[in-house]
Simulated assay, not measured.
Amino acid sequence: MKTLLRPTTPTGHIVRHYLEMVVAMVVGMIALGPLWSLAGEALGWTAAFHAPEPASLIMATNMSVAMCAWMRFRGHGWPATLEMAAAMYLPFVVLFPPMWAGLISAGTVMVGGHVLMLPAMAVAMLLRRGEYIGHCATRS
């Protein structure tokens, strides 16, 4: 019996790619996070790196670097890769104004940004369904 989530089905391709991106994001956070800590200490910027805005954008960068590297390795084009990276940053940036207005906390920005990036990734994928459904993506 053929299931929708098999890697050979269009839905299976999309689900596999989505899960690969989540894994790459976690790898990026684990691998690159300590480098930022070392850089912050070496430059005397540790406090600045822990402010909500830089902390969230650094986290988005860590996730984006690993995710973009994996996407390019898998043959995805630059437009799709950069859209997926934008999905890492946009949720945080959207939450900054409510934080500045005192409506939400810095913790809410960090948690909310991570939660909102998951649907943002899905939207980025839906915009280029063809790229994520095919066996081999084309390079742009």
Results as ranks from 00 to 15, higher is better:
133 I>F: 04
123 V>W: 11
16 R>K: 13
79 P>T: 00
2 K>F: 12
109 V>C: 03
30 I>F: 05
136 C>M: 10
130 G>C: 04
113 G>W: 01
123 V>Q: 10
85 A>N: 01
38 L>M: 14
59 M>E: 08
48 A>K: 08
15 V>P: 03
135 H>N: 06
22 V>K: 04
78 W>K: 12
38 L>I: 06
10 P>S: 04
139 R>P: 07
24 A>F: 10
99 M>F: 07
88 M>G: 02
51 A>M: 15
110 M>Y: 04
58 I>K: 00
87 A>P: 06
140 S>G: 15
3 T>V: 13
105 S>E: 14
47 A>Y: 05
102 G>M: 01
49 F>N: 11
121 M>R: 12
1 M>E: 09
104 I>S: 02
116 L>E: 03
82 L>R: 03
60 A>L: 01
30 I>G: 00
105 S>M: 15
37 S>R: 06
1 M>F: 08
18 Y>A: 14
19 L>P: 07
34 P>K: 00
40 G>I: 09
97 P>L: 01
68 C>M: 14
101 A>N: 03
57 L>C: 02
61 T>F: 15
51 A>I: 07
88 M>F: 02
29 M>T: 14
95 L>Y: 03
46 T>P: 05
48 A>R: 09
7 P>L: 06
43 L>F: 05
58 I>T: 06
113 G>Q: 00
37 S>W: 07
33 G>R: 00
14 I>K: 00
134 G>D: 08
114 H>A: 11
111 V>E: 00
109 V>I: 10
20 E>Q: 14
42 A>P: 06
104 I>F: 02
48 A>L: 11
112 G>V: 05
89 Y>G: 03
115 V>D: 00
55 A>N: 07
101 A>R: 00
54 P>F: 09
88 M>D: 03
103 L>G: 13
82 L>V: 09
45 W>H: 13
128 R>E: 05
109 V>H: 03
132 Y>A: 06
30 I>T: 07
137 A>G: 12
126 L>I: 15
122 A>C: 12
4 L>K: 11
113 G>A: 00
53 E>I: 15
81 T>R: 08
92 F>C: 01
105 S>C: 15
55 A>H: 06
81 T>P: 08
57 L>A: 01
94 V>H: 03
117 M>Q: 13
14 I>E: 00
59 M>N: 04
126 L>D: 05
